[in-house]
Structures are given as structure tokens and as C-alpha cells.
Amino acid sequence: MNAFEYASPTSVDDAVSLLSDSWGETEVLAGGTDLLTLLKQGLTAPRLVVSLSNVKQLSGISKKGGSLEIGATTTLSELVANADVQEHFPALVTAANNIGSTQILNAGTVGGDLLQRPRCWYFRNGFGLFGTHDGEPLVPTGDNRYHAIFGNSGAAKFVNASSLAPGLIALGATLSVQGPGGAREVKASEFYSTPKSENDREYTLKPNEVLTGVSIPMQGLRNGTYEVRQRRGLDWPMVAASVAFEHGGGTVSDARIVLGHVAPVPWFAEKASKELGGKQPNDAALKSASEAAVADATPLSRNGYKVQQLRVAVRRAIEAALA
């Protein structure tokens, strides 16, 4: 870990004013469950760390109009304990609880989950976001068992690690960010992007912006998440699926199926979503949706198993939403 300056401003404006417009010069600290390991492993070496712990308005959950507003530094424990979240968004409760570590739920934040860096073991062991050595990519011929099966034709083959993003995208959530030019809103579905260079990050947030919160419309959508995880304790899913749809007993409408841990971004399964829409959610519909979800998968040398797991995750997520 390098020596760095530390600031703990009390307002978002002050926090924003401290941030550099280049990635890596400054880092934002919330729960620290990811940033501290990145710092310790020398994967980031900022001159300044800006803590959000004293920006009190960023924490908490409240109803506003027809939406639930969740502050970016709300802890994952607070999220899963919230009665409205439990009632309306089981997809998020399942996803957060599946993180599997009470300590991380207590320390980790909603914003931190959405912004965490890839867990790719090439990245974490110093081979960069794209996993290269002497300019040669290591991942295609290396050990890619946990890597992407979608969106992996470019240099980026890692998977987005967020537990909550698939659920938030499925639920039509909007994220609020604040930068030097003021606040802006961005759809969760448009928040992530696949980096084009080693210096990019995995989202459209700018280096001098702070993610301030999440707004989820409370539309009465049925929703659910299913993750295939090897360990019951702290572990990363091999694949995850979150779904949300309108279903009053007849046919399904407004279906969104979003996949996690399968692509460099949370992966909107467009074909599968369409496949599920307009149908009675019976076995045949679930099967065709789950087949559609994996139809375009492009597994690497060692992660073909994820395709099968994903079929199952999609079906079980829909079943969870219907339950």
C-alpha cells in the first residue's frame, strides 16, 4: 500500500471537489471491503482517498413518490433488513444475502457493491484489467473458469462482480450521480460499459463523480434472483440471474432478465426477456426463456459449464419471482 492523503468531507459537493478527473489519482472510500484490498495489493495507488463516511445524507432508505430511494452508503445489512425492500424487491434481498458474509454485509455498501472492481484473478494478481503479459493476452489460453461467456470477444474477459446490479437493472432502477457540473441521473441499464483500455473503469461514472443513490420504481413487479455459488459462506457466484416482470395470473409482461457474473457488464438477456413476455409462465415458457438466455453464449476454453448453470439460474430466478 502506498502512502496517501485522506479526506473525510461532510457534503457531496466537498467530496466531488476533492476528486481528480483522472482515474486512480483519487479513490472514493465507502465500506472499504473492495478498496482496502485494492490498496493493499497495490492495484490502485491514489494520492488521496476521499471517505464518504461523514456525508450523512448518502445513507438511508426512504419512499419518494412511487419509488424507493436508497442512499449510496446504505449498508447491505440495512438494505436487506428494510421492510419495503423485503416486501417489494426480493431479488435484491436474495442477491445481497447471497454475499454470504455478515461482516461484508455490515461494512459493505450499496454503492460499493455497484462500483466494485472485477474479481478476475488475472486483474487481482497484477496482470491488469485485460490480463496480459508482455502485451500477450493470458486469459484465452489461461485459466478462465470464472470468466465471461458473453461480451468476451474484445480484450475484456472478466465478469462484472456486482451482486445488486442485475436486480436493479431488471427492476428499472435509476442511479444518481453528482459531479462538478451538478447532479445527473442515469438508468441502471446504461450505467455499465466494457472498458476499452486498461485505464478505463467498468462503468460510465466519471472519475470526479460520486454515486449518490439508487431509485427503484415500486411498480409491483414480481422479481427474483438465483445465483449458483459453490460455497454457502462468502463466495462469488459462478453465474447469477435476476428477473422482474408483471404477472397478474395470466400472461407475463414487461419482463426483464439480467444476468450476472457472465460478462464484463451486467448482461441484459434481451432474447430471453422477449421469450418470456406474453406467455403463461409454465414449464415450456421457462424452458424457452432459459434456452434463449444462453443461445448466444460464447464460452472460453474452461468455462463452458457456466452455460448449463445459467440455464438453470434463469429458470430458478423466474420460479423464485413467481413463488
Binding site: R119, W121, Y122, R124, N125, F127, H133, E136, L138, T141, G142, D143, Y146, Q230, R231, R232, G233, L234, D235, W236
Partner: peptide
């Protein structure tokens, strides 16, 4: 133990991907 075949680097020198059973397992 998992190694990158090209560089010989150990890819899971941790307790995150070098997995150990927890009580729930």
C-alpha cells in the same frame, strides 16, 4: 492451487478463490 500456464503465476494465492469450507458447507 491454480496457476496461469503461460507465466506460472499462482492465480488464487488467497482465501477468496483458494476456497476453504465454512461451517455452512
Amino acid at each position: 492451487t491454480v496457476y496461469d500456464p503461460a507465466t506460472g503465476a499462482m492465480l488464487n494465492p488467497d482465501f477468496e478463490f483458494y476456497k476453504i469450507a465454512g461451517l455452512a458447507d
